[in-house]
Design a protein around this nucleic acid. Structure first.
Length: 434
DNA sequence: AAGACGGGGCT
DNA sequence: AGCCCAGTCTT
């Protein structure tokens, strides 16, 4: 590759961008906080998906200070449905760092920006170049694809070392005084023209010297090793329908502080039988047919009762909460990058919670042993309940909940952040109830 | 270096 | 229905 071809690339691409760039909400000005929020939202997420979230987020948290002092639940709720929720928590932590250490102003300093929570090499480069016009590379997936093709680079872009070498290349291509526009031009080309499948070479501003196209390799570039397929997991969920003072309400719970979907709300659920065992679905070839809809995966009544039993026992053991499953309600699939949940939802009635503060160890142990020993856990709930209440006044049927549980009606949905799968299930449930 | 971490679009 | 897209943090 000659330096002329490199200069041609930078010049033509920059010219093309200035004529063809999209009008986007984060391109209204160069407020570094606005750029930062947009770049974090745009990680792993398409522009069209981000726009409405971005508008709402900036409306609610217009400055780093506003974000820093907001209750975390509000930030999470604003992020609901966008995914990768640690982005939201890291962004807020970053805003708090900006307030605490930089007087509420995003610093015009590469090392300081890079040190902010949730800001890695890409976002650092994006903020420094777009907000401050500093000549730093901002290499995301688009940029790796565009440069791999234009320079016909056959290194595996899944390797961290490849990103580093492409960063050096990208830095060398930045035209004097135009870092922000050039980096955005690279990404804009990747999003609009040099797309992953069927790249639009015929409308590409730099087609004439594209080495990948000239070698006939534009369709096989970039080289990227395949990700491991997600592992399937059966989840048994309880749609616990309230009665009496909780009539018309459903029991939800909050997830732990860390890990998958941290601090989000959900229907209570437990791990089901191992997916490859397959007996519970009665499917001889579960791997192939795992994703099939419920129609093609008949589940026997016996298997349903087995799942209800597992669900009841696991909730008793894990949460000290006794429920009585009453029947199968529906199924939902939730695909993550590293796993697939096959959520089997059962309606249930609330039994009682062992009051840990008041109950003796012995009382709890006796009740849980009974639940574990019972051949049909849900069926013996009333036995356990009656015996326990008789055995000890410290066990309070129908009273109390574990601290991370809530009863909610449809009007309370707005107060809790749910992952999409439970959002869909709950909305569907409220619809069918009417 | 590999795994965890969501959700959506295209064909 | 099966293919693809992907930054940062943790381990």
């Amino acid at each position: 590759m000659t330096t002329e071809a490199a200069e041609y690339f930078s010049r033509e691409l920059l010219g093309w961008y200035r004529e063809n760039k999209r009008i986007l909400p984060w391109r209204m000005n160069r407020d570094p906080y606005r750029i930062w929020v947009s770049e974090v939202m745009l990680q792993q997420t398409r522009v069209d998906t981000v726009i409405p979230y971005y508008e709402r987020f900036m409306d609610k948290f217009p400055t780093a200070a506003a974000l820093a002092e907001a209750p975390e639940e509000e930030v999470l709720k604003c992020w609901e449905g966008l995914g990768y929720y640690s982005r939201a928590r890291n962004l807020q932590a970053g805003a708090q760092e900006v307030v605490g250490r930089h007087d509420g102003v995003v610093p015009d300093d590469k090392e300081a920006v890079s040190a902010l929570r949730g800001v890695g090499p890409y976002t650092t480069g994006a903020i420094m170049s777009i907000a401050f016009n500093r000549p730093e590379p901002a290499v995301d997936g688009n940029v790796m694809r565009v440069l791999s093709r234009y320079f016909c680079l056959e290194d595996d872009i899944a390797k961290p070392s490849t990103r580093v070498s492409i960063e050096k290349l990208a830095a060398s291509l930045i035209p004097e005084g135009a870092a922000g526009d050039f980096n955005q031009a690279l990404m804009e080309l990747g999003a609009l023209v040099c797309t992953p499948k069927s790249p639009g070479c015929l409308t590409c501003p730099v087609m004439a010297h594209c080495e990948g196209r000239m070698a006939g390799k534009e369709h096989i570039l970039p080289i990227k090793t395949k990700a491991k397929p997600p592992r399937p997991e059966v989840r048994l969920a309880a749609l616990v329908v309230g009665t009496g003072e909780h009539a018309g309400q459903i029991l939800i719970r909050q997830r732990p502080d860390s890990g998958l979907l941290a601090r989000m709300w959900e229907l209570p659920h437990v791990t089901g039988p191992a997916a490859e065992a397959g007996e519970s679905t009665g499917d001889a070839n579960p791997k192939k047919r795992r994703r099939s809809g419920v129609k093609s995966v008949p589940v026997s009544q016996l298997a349903r009762e087995g799942q209800m039993d597992v669900l009841c026992r696991a909730l008793a053991k894990e949460e000290k909460m006794l429920i009585r499953p009453t029947g199968w309600w529906g199924e939902a699939e939730h695909v993550f990058s590293h796993l697939i949940w096959d959520v089997q939802v059962y309606t249930a009635e609330f039994g009682f919670v062992l009051d840990e503060a008041a109950a003796t160890e012995e009382t709890a142990a006796v009740a849980l042993d009974r639940a574990a020993e019972a051949q049909a856990g849900y069926a013996v709930l009333h036995d356990i309940q009656n015996e326990s209440t008789m055995a000890s006044s410290q066990v309070k049927p129908g009273e109390g909940l574990p601290p991370h549980y809530r009863w909610i009606g449809p009007e309370h949905m707005m107060n809790y952040a749910f992952p999409n799968v439970f959002l869909r299930l709950l909305r569907e449930y409220w619809e069918t109830v009417d």
